[in-house]
Structures are given as C-alpha cells and as structure tokens.
Design a protein around this nucleic acid. Structure first.
Lengths: 138, 138
DNA sequence: GAGCTAAACGCAACTGAGTTGCATCTAGCT
DNA sequence: AGCTAGATGCAACTCAGTTGCGTTTAGCTC
C-alpha cells in the first residue's frame, strides 16, 4: 500500500527532507502517471523549482527507489512515483505513449514476456513501449 | 532475400541516387545492426558526409522504407537497413542494447507479444528494448 | 536554542541530438 | 546541353540533460 506522505517517505529512505523534494514527490504521487521534466517544471511553476534542481531531485528520488522513469519515443524521460512495496515498475509492465497529446500511461497488470538473448548476454532491464492515440486523441 | 545493391535499391523506391545515399545505405546493409547517427558520421569520415545531410539521408531512407530506427535507452536513435521483402522491423522483434559498449542487436525470430490497451486506445507502433551487457562486455 | 557541516540549491555555462532556413549544387529529365 | 525539382552544405537554432561552483540549509551536536 502506497504511503502517500512525501515527508515520511523521504525520511523512510534516509534522505534529507527539503521543500523541493516534498513538492515534487507529492505531485508525482498525486499524478500517478509518468510525466516529463519540462511538464513538471510547468505544473510546479507556483513553487518555482529550478530546472537543474528538478533534475537533481528526480535523480535522487530514483536513487532511493521512490521514483522510476520510462523513456518516451521522443527520447525524453517520464518520471513516475511508485509504491515501495511493489516490484519496481520499469521492466514490470508495458507503457503506452500517445503520439498526439504526449500523455503516457502504465499498462499495469500485464507482465513483460521473457525474451531469449544470445548466449553470454546478460539482461538488466527491459522496456516495452506502445505508441498510438489515446481515447481522447483518436 | 535482401538485394544488397544500394543503387538499385534506391532506384526501386523511386528516389534520386546520390553519392551520400549510396554510401550510407551500403554501410547500413553491410553493418546489418542498428547504429547511431554520431557513429555513422565517424565510420563514414572518409566520405565526409555532412551532419545535417546524414540526418536527411536517414530520414529519406526511412520514408521509403529502406531503413528503420530504434531508440536506445540513452534516448538516441539507431538506424538499420532492412529487407524490403520482410515485414518492417520496428514492432516486429525486440532489441538488445549493451550498456557498456552501446552496441545494439536485433533479437530476430522472436515476435512481440500482443498487449491489451484500454478501450478506445489505438496502437500504431511498439518497441521492446532489453538492456544489459553483451557477451564481450560481461 | 546556537553553531557546524555535509548535503542541497541556484545560476551560468556547457554538451550532444536533432531541426530549420537558405543559398548553392546536381540527378536525371527533355 | 539545358533545365529544374530535389539534394546538399553551412550557420544558427531548440531542447534535454549535465557540470562546476558559490551560496544556502537540514538536521546533527552541544
């Protein structure tokens, strides 16, 4: 079950609780959907979080496992908070990216298949990305 | 069966046969493995192909279906020539990207699974990317 | 509560992928 | 050989993401 208190979550992984981290984490938990750095800056404008700081906050949140990211087909990353008690999202389920509005959703409940790799190869991570139009943009 | 004559291939899809297009296509056919724009520039240095021209050549080759591209987890595209007679590569099979040397290979012979999307969603394309170490880098 | 310090932040400058505009060149047609 | 749409070369730009460095602050100790 996802603890939705950003401050407690941050404490629980032994990182400093700063205004920026709380704000970003709270937003990502609320959003519950992968979102781009640029969109975050925009959404969090009232809190005027510095561009570089946001990168560093996201990076830190990933380090401690509170956030993960998936890549869109435009090459940019989408960040998403995830439940500490669940298996980490990347590698877990496919994602869908709308080509028109750019929204990304997690296709939860569907596991990624096992793929055979050549002998001697070692798999660390996998990403399955679908592209198309979402219901609103079709 | 892949016709390996770049000039004939270009003619067959009704585009102008230029020195740059022949060079790039010939290299991609020879390489038979997804490769980044920057690496291509490097590999084709003897032919000094202009940066922007290479982007446009690749773009054109994709338009006519002689080349496709897959995205690496670093966000950059890898370009790959493919057989006109086969089904297009993207959406067809998974790819493996080595985190150390950056080499990418096609995991041919394995089809991508069908994924359920929410009602009203429309899928145009899918990409399945595995990451890890290749046999040389492990 | 005051003082201290490692960690975090803010700002400027940078890198690298990819795009756009425009003047020049050329493939391949008549 | 001459013509022209399409291709190339070059400069300048955008946008995502990173690095360096001086300043601020969370949260520890006393």
């Amino acid at each position: 079950m996802l603890n939705k208190n950003p401050s407690l979550l941050l404490k629980s992984v032994n990182v400093r609780v700063t205004q920026q981290r709380e704000t970003v984490l709270a937003y990502l938990i609320e959003k519950a959907q992968p979102i781009r750095h640029a969109e975050l800056i925009d959404e969090l404008k009232p809190y005027h979080i510095e561009r570089v700081t946001l990168y560093r906050v996201l990076s830190k949140l990933m380090d401690v496992g509170l956030v993960h990211r998936v890549q869109g087909s435009d090459g940019t990353w989408r960040y998403c908070a995830h439940d500490l008690s669940e298996e980490h999202c990347p590698g877990g389920h496919p994602h869908f990216l709308c080509e028109k509005c750019g929204d990304m959703i997690c296709l939860e409940g569907q596991r990624l298949p096992r793929v055979e790799v050549p002998k001697g190869y070692e798999v660390h991570n996998k990403q399955f990305l679908l592209q198309g139009y979402c219901n609103r943009c079709k």
